[in-house]
Amino acid sequence: MTTLTAFVVVVVLVALERLAELVVSNRNAAWSLAHGGRETGRGHYPVMVLLHTGFLVAMLVEAFVRSPVVSEGFAWAMVVVVVVAQCLRWWCILTLGERWNTRVIVVPGLQLVRSGPYRFFPHPNYVAVVVEGIALPLVHASWITALVFTAANAALLTVRIRVENEALAHA
């Protein structure tokens, strides 16, 4: 298997993981809304979906167009980082349980979760997103995608975290 083929497989696996997240997210969003949850921040959500979808496509396009030489050792190191980021993401999902979804929906009256990775810092899922945004494209030396996504994601996370913090403060 070529390194490019292996990279495509890794990106497809991440895309399938994202689809699994959406299934869990939709189920949990329905639970939150059924329990009186209020959604905020709808305006940035389509931008987030577009950015994250574009991210998966862009790194593949970059890998095919640029055809970079990839160090196998570095590629494997980045795969390990991506797997660690996925583990952190799913630790967040499992810790929040029915409360976790990809939108900002807060159920009034529920205590903030301060266990799992949330005992260390308030937005651990975004740490996973940032780490993955750098490491996944670098599996096949798609550094342009890593840079552009990281910058765009930083702008998006500035909005997203402000919206979440405001929603949680008024829950």
Rank of each mutant, 00 (worst) to 15 (best):
F149K: 05
P122T: 06
V106H: 12
R27L: 07
V14L: 13
R99V: 01
T53C: 12
R89P: 00
T95G: 04
L22P: 00
N153L: 14
P137K: 09
A154T: 06
A171P: 02
R38H: 13
S32Y: 11
Y45C: 04
L4Y: 12
V14F: 14
H140V: 01
V81E: 02
L19N: 03
W76T: 00
P137C: 11
A155C: 14
E98W: 04
L110Y: 04
L136I: 00
R42I: 01
R119I: 01
P137T: 07
P124H: 08
P46G: 04
A29R: 14
L156I: 02
V23P: 02
V107M: 07
N26V: 02
T158F: 15
V23L: 10
W76K: 06
V11N: 09
C92G: 02
A155Q: 13
G43V: 03
P68K: 09
L112V: 07
R42H: 11
R160H: 06
L156M: 09
T53H: 11
H44K: 08
R89C: 01
E62D: 03
H44Y: 13
V47S: 10
V49R: 13
T158A: 15
Q111Y: 04
V80F: 08
G36F: 12
V57R: 11
T3G: 14
Y118Q: 01
M1P: 01
V83Y: 00
V49T: 07
L4E: 03
S32L: 09
G54M: 11
L147D: 10
L50Y: 11
G36C: 10
V106Q: 08
E17W: 01
L50V: 07
R89E: 00
V130Y: 15
V12F: 13
A146W: 15
L51E: 07
F55R: 05
R38G: 09
G97V: 00
N26Y: 04
P122M: 03
V8G: 09
Q111E: 15
N28E: 00
V127R: 01
S71K: 05
C92Y: 10
G97N: 02
H170F: 05
S25G: 12
V23S: 07
R162P: 02
V130M: 14
A151V: 14
G43Q: 08
L136D: 04
E166C: 03
C87R: 10
H140E: 07
V129S: 13
L16A: 08
M59K: 12
I144S: 11
F55E: 08
A29W: 05
A169S: 15
T40E: 07
R38V: 10
E62L: 06
R162I: 00
A20M: 06
S71C: 07
V139I: 13
L33A: 10
F149C: 04
R66L: 14
G116H: 01
G36N: 13
R42G: 15
S25C: 10
M78I: 00
F149D: 05
E166N: 12
W143A: 13
I144T: 06
R160F: 08
E132F: 02
Y118K: 05
M48A: 15
E164D: 03
T3R: 13
W100M: 02
L112A: 15
F120W: 14
S67H: 14
I144N: 08
T2R: 06
R160I: 04
A128P: 04
L13P: 06
V12A: 15
